[in-house]
Simulated assay, not measured.
Amino acid sequence: MHKSTSPKRKSFKVYAISSTAVLVGGVATALIAGVTPATAANLAHQPDAQIVAFMLPLTILVLAMLFEVARIALRGNIPVQARASRSARLQWSTDRAEG
């Protein structure tokens, strides 16, 4: 049997509660700062804001991937790869006509 090298997963409940708290905090901060849909729409027409809206998630994704690669590489033991299963050859009959 295959042994997993990763530790036991934490509960999804913790992640759900923390992400909801961050979302509520962000909304509260935006409301306190006076951001309304009209001002956000006006800001979205500026080219700099459009570039940031595209590049920020992309940059975060690349940094997360680099972090995961470094974490796995520095951990020392590479996760075991599953053996490739042999593909079964299909037995096609030659007496059938196409069409």
Rank of each mutant, 00 (worst) to 15 (best):
R86N: 12
D48P: 00
N77P: 10
L31C: 08
L90N: 06
T5P: 15
T29I: 08
K10W: 06
V24Q: 01
V80H: 12
A53V: 03
T5F: 13
T39W: 00
A21H: 02
T36D: 00
L58Q: 09
S93G: 08
L63Y: 04
H2T: 12
S6Q: 14
S85P: 03
Q50T: 06
Q81T: 13
S18Q: 14
Q81Y: 08
A49T: 13
A28W: 06
L23R: 15
I72H: 07
A33Q: 08
N42S: 15
A73D: 04
N77C: 07
S19H: 05
A64K: 11
L66Q: 02
A38V: 06
F54I: 15
S93M: 10
A21F: 07
V27T: 04
R83H: 05
V22S: 10
A40R: 01
R83S: 08
V62N: 00
S85T: 15
D95K: 15
V14N: 05
K8E: 15
K8N: 08
T20N: 10
A21Y: 02
G99Q: 11
F12D: 13
M1I: 09
Y15S: 10
L63A: 05
I32H: 05
A21N: 04
N77W: 07
P37L: 03
M1P: 02
R96G: 00
Q46C: 04
N77G: 02
A38F: 02
P47H: 01
A38N: 04
S85G: 11
S87P: 06
V22G: 00
I32D: 00
G25H: 04
A70D: 02
L63T: 01
T20K: 14
S93K: 12
A28M: 10
P7W: 02
R89F: 10
I78T: 11
A21R: 10
D48N: 15
H2Y: 15
R71A: 04
